[in-house]
Nucleic acid binder design. Sequence first.
RNA 1: GCGGGCGUAGCUCAGAUGGUAGAGCGCCAGGUUGUGGUCUUGGAUGUCGCGGGUUCGAGUCCCGUCGCUCGCCCCA
Length: 411
Amino acid sequence: MSELQPVRGTRDLIGEDHRRHLHVIDTARRVAARYGLEEWATPIFEDTRVFSRSLGDTSDVVMKEMYSFTDRGGDSLTLRPEGTAGVCRALVTNGLTQSLPQKVFYAGPMFRYERPQKGRYRQFHQIGAEVIGPAEPLADAEIIACGWDILQALGIADDVVLEVNTLGDRESRDAYRAALVDYFTAHQAGLSEDSLLRLERNPLRILDSKDEADRRIIADAPDIHAHLTPEAAAFYDRLKSYLAGFGVPFVDNPRIVRGLDYYGHTAFEFVTTRLGAQGTVMAGGRYDGLVAEMGGPPTPAVGWAAGIERLSMLLTEVPAAPRPVAVVPVGEAAEATALAVLQSLRRAGIRAEMAYRGNMKRRLERANRIGARAVIILGETELARGVAQVKDFSTGTQQEVLLAELIAKLQ
RNA sequence: GCGGGCGUAGCUCAGAUGGUAGAGCGCCAGGUUGUGGUCUUGGAUGUCGCGGGUUCGAGUCCCGUCGCUCGCCCCA
């Protein structure tokens, strides 16, 4: 075992791991484009205030999980823990609040200082989608439909259930929070220690406690729907009918919550039972207050993010490693022709390789090791006649092909 | 920050009650000086995570430590 190991919570993406990872991004990118999303790439580190503002002062626990550092100029910078804040900052700094709506897709690394566990790393990767501008629930439904299509294109939709909820507007939320505090205070005696703490700090979070005793109490907890203003209830109804219109199956889950104040109305999660404790595969909601936090005008927005590592683990069909054609010259005299053949294949769009050294046997062994689908053997007897031996590695059969017909033969 | 499991060859792992370390796969070489994969013969693997202790003797027992992993907390 070598002395230098990857830093805790990071890992190398090599071979199949990387093919899975790329497949997720490529697929998501392709589907997102069909919805008219444009891909943005924002910096992976930002002024710490970009994130501290978006989090508010309520969650200093979360602040402790940020990778923050002071640079040589004395500024506090932070490796981005999520993508939405940076996108909103970019929207404002590029003056795009004047050209709404903006429909954005992104993919890239995120960083959180937390204890690694299944599907959870300190450097992890997300894809994300945001629609900034529209206040209509049609935008919520559309971005959810986009996420659903991506999961389908990845072949994992069968293992995933879409759960939706509404957090209502400000008025609804305040009323609901008060009702929850009343209810849980009345049932304090049965609550777990953790939930008693949550009751003081963040009562909504009790709703997703994993403690069994808690769950029994939660089952009879007040429902947000009883506390929705007529406007908020209408918004949620329209969302659900649009989802039906887009053909996206979903279930109501009134227990989905969000911790931060700028979240309102739609909240949703795509969940699976196949990943142990990390069941959420894609999650999002409406965040009408965030752009204003970044110094822009009040601007409604809705979006989601998904962890690429988790999606990769769910893939059942792994993209196959590419199979090249190997060119095998026999003897020095054949090398010049071999190079010409090699390049003509590559320029015709065929993945082609030639070993740097070795006799024929070695080169064939190497061709086999790299998964070649065929080898082109060029020796003196072939050169003299302007042909090559083409051996199909799947079947083991070999035939003579005119050099001029090689590309057509291997296309 | 807290709890459970695990650290032995490149990989997956076996090594009852302490006696100087093994298998499969992979790798290297030969059988085959113009034919891979299959077959066959042979070969090389190692600070048994690290440090200390007990013992005539520790991969094995004890203490500590680091790492991995699953979960709790947290989840923007």
